[in-house]
């Protein structure tokens, strides 16, 4: 692992995004290395979620580019972004509520599978084999995130913590290289957060890279290799947690808006 730790996986170059008068992102550049856990923090409204939305092609950027494994990402096509290996979760969980937990994860396999209508109608050998593989992988992932016992329940009937985990399983089903999590610990109690932390560490140990937006500063500082701080859409710091924590600009940004 240490041999590849310095290799750049993703590089954002001068990314900008405006909503009317609001400059949600301004000239944001950051570099994520392979297999690290990279934290993205900042006060509410700093532009963290917007960065995810731009990165995953859900919002169209105004400026800048993102390189992934050295190639310019097609930021206008979300499924293309998923295909090259970026998967995400949402701050306000977005599961397929009326599908089972199992089916949610199976949908995540869509981008790595190929069977078409003809295969489905004739239940060809290849189609049956692929379906079985999708099912197997989905089961594995449900175990992996710890919601296997809820496999046949509708996603919307799962507990909040289980929904967060299920969303991670669905993201992992796309075989991502970069897993981007938007406030995964939001609304979790201490036990659930500890479990989440173990899960994220496990994901990294399995060779993935993690981009983590998180409000829980303790979690971020303990978990991340490096952290970037956004404030009013601009990056004001990027370094190892200890250095970032001591940065006066960061302290000011947090204190200046610590109304919550």
């Amino acid at each position: 692992m240490s041999a590849t730790i310095n290799e750049v996986l993703m590089e954002a170059r001068g990314v900008g995004k405006r909503f009317g008068g609001v400059q949600a992102l301004k000239d944001v550049s950051l570099t994520i290395r392979r297999n690290e856990i990279y934290g993205l923090i900042g006060p509410n409204g700093a532009g963290k979620t917007t960065f995810f939305n731009v990165l995953t092609g859900l919002y169209q950027r105004d400026d800048g580019d993102v390189l992934f494994e050295g190639n310019v990402l097609n930021l206008t096509s979300p499924h293309e972004v998923a295909r090259v290996g970026i998967a995400r979760t949402f701050q306000n969980i977005r599961l397929f509520g009326n599908m089972t937990a199992m089916e949610n994860v199976m949908v995540g396999r869509h981008v790595r599978t190929h069977q078409n209508v003809i295969g489905a109608i004739f239940r060809t050998k290849a189609e049956r084999a692929e379906e079985a593989a999708i099912r197997r992988r989905a089961e594995e992932l449900l175990h992996y995130v710890g919601v296997a016992d809820r496999a046949q329940d509708l996603a919307k009937n799962l507990s909040y913590g289980d929904q967060r985990r299920l969303e991670i399983a669905r993201a992992l089903a796309t075989d991502p290289k970069l897993l981007a999590l938007d406030e995964p610990a939001a609304g979790m109690n201490a036990t659930e957060t500890a479990g989440l932390r173990t899960l994220i560490e496990g994901v990294r140990a399995d060779g993935l890279t993690v981009l983590l937006i998180e409000h829980d500063v303790k979690l971020v500082m303990g978990l991340c290799d490096r952290v970037a701080v956004l404030d009013y859409g601009q990056k004001i710091a990027e370094d190892v947690p200890a250095v970032v924590r001591a940065n006066p600009k960061v302290i000011e940004a947090y204190i200046g808006t610590s109304t919550h």
Partner: peptide, 28 residues
């Protein structure tokens, strides 16, 4: 068969949440 297939799941996923379906890699 269509309903129980990869394509059928993708249809329902789009019905349930198009944005999430896109992010999960479906060419909606």
């Amino acid at each position: 068969r269509l309903q129980d297939s990869r394509i059928g799941r993708a249809w329902v996923a789009i019905r349930e949440d198009e944005v999430a379906a896109k992010a999960a890699g479906i060419n909606t």
